[in-house]
Computed example of a mutant assay.
Amino acid sequence: MNMTSHARTRQSQRAVPPLIVDWLDRYGTREADGRGAEIVYFNKQSKRTLERDAGKRVVDLLGQYFDAYLVVEDEKVITVGHRYKRVRRA
């Protein structure tokens, strides 16, 4: 997935491992943010799918990163962060 320099900087500052960004891209749920971009995050179903593919032990060990999210616009990640609130659905 293509990332802007801003997204790479935020990923580093917010200590989100590249593996989590990859998993978000593959397994994450996508919701429109109402401004033309998408928020990609882990929900219960995406965590279950990831657990089935990667294994329960791996998911348990890396569970602290499952509050991470991506904001994607035009197939580019524009920022990376940690969720502190629920994602509002449209």
Rank of each mutant, 00 (worst) to 15 (best):
Q13L: 09
T29G: 01
A68G: 02
T4K: 11
R10C: 05
R35T: 12
Q64G: 12
V77A: 10
H6C: 00
D33V: 01
A15C: 08
E75D: 15
D67H: 10
R14M: 12
L24A: 11
K85S: 13
R52I: 00
I20L: 02
R86N: 15
V71Y: 06
M1Q: 11
L70M: 10
Y65L: 04
S12T: 09
R52C: 09
L50K: 03
V87T: 15
Q64L: 09
Y41Q: 07
L70D: 10
G81H: 12
I78K: 13
G34K: 04
V40M: 06
F42P: 01
R52V: 00
Y41R: 07
A54N: 06
T29E: 14
I39K: 09
G81C: 08
H82G: 02
L62Q: 03
V21F: 08
A90L: 11
R26I: 06
K76E: 14
Y41S: 10
R88A: 13
P17H: 04
T9S: 12
V59N: 07
K47D: 05
T49K: 11
R30E: 06
K56C: 09
T9M: 10
P17Y: 04
L24E: 11
H6D: 02
T29L: 09
M3Y: 09
Y65N: 09
V58T: 15
Q64I: 13
R83V: 02
N2P: 12
R26T: 09
I78R: 14
M1R: 08
S5Q: 12
R57G: 10
R88Q: 14
K85V: 10
